[in-house]
Amino acid sequence: MTQRSLWDLFITYVARSYPRILMLTWQHLYISGIALAITLVICIPLGIYLTRNEKLAPYVIGLANVFQTIPSLALLGFLIFVFGIGNDNAIAALVLYAMLPVIQNTYTGLRNVPPSLIQAARGMGMTERQILLKVQLPLARPVLIAGIRVATVWVIGTATLAAAIGGGGLGRLIFSGLASIRNEVILAGAIPATILALLADQCLKMLENYYSPETRAKRLARLGPLEPDKPWDSDQDETVLADETEENEEAASESPSDVDKTKGEDVS
């Protein structure tokens, strides 16, 4: 048997089993996406709540910090007693793992909004809800999105461990590659996972740029006002930033999958 280079082996492996790689990539995205969505739905409102109940903040953030420090494999192991084995367990562990940056950044971002702006907004007749949605959250957005970016990269990276407790995802390839000492299989799992994480991060970065006041002002100047012809009070206009980011989150996780699929095809 002739010694073949790792590259050859990798290409051959990918060419032969790209349907499996794609399927696992999709699973990986699914696990990470659900975990992130749950994290955002829980943690952004929680962060907002904490700014209104300052006394609780150190305890909640401390608790999130504790989950953060438990080694992820051990956390997955503990959760077997609660969720059994499989994807649910993995998703729960990922949520616990990703909580800290989102809660903390929501909290800090909101707290850093200058009180004079809040007072001015109140003095002009904004309701507390409008102050949150139109002043505090938009101003906290850069910090908030930075937290979400950290959480996203962690979740996509850590999701590979789901395979260790019977879940799916690209971790399967990595673990089976490890077990059979086949580096090309490990690579076939690791490379797409890395690409996914980087792409998701880049998408969120672009999103943040898109919404930054500078680009937004330029866009407005070019296109004229894009704002809907609705008063801020009307019910339809209640676009919570949390929803916004989630949608974008989905968009972000969808687009890498598309890109990744085309990549897979290219390789094949």
């Binding site: 200058p114 004079s116 702006l117 007072q119 001015a120 907004a121 109140r122 003095g123 002009m124 007749g125 904004m126 309701t127 002043v135 938009p138 101003l139 006041p213 937004r216 002002a217 407005l220």
Partner: peptide, 21 residues
Amino acid sequence: VTLRRNIGYVVQDIALMPHLS
């Protein structure tokens, strides 16, 4: 809220919303 919307208010530190044009 109604009262404040019908009274103009200018504050010392100006406090324009930096994220809005």
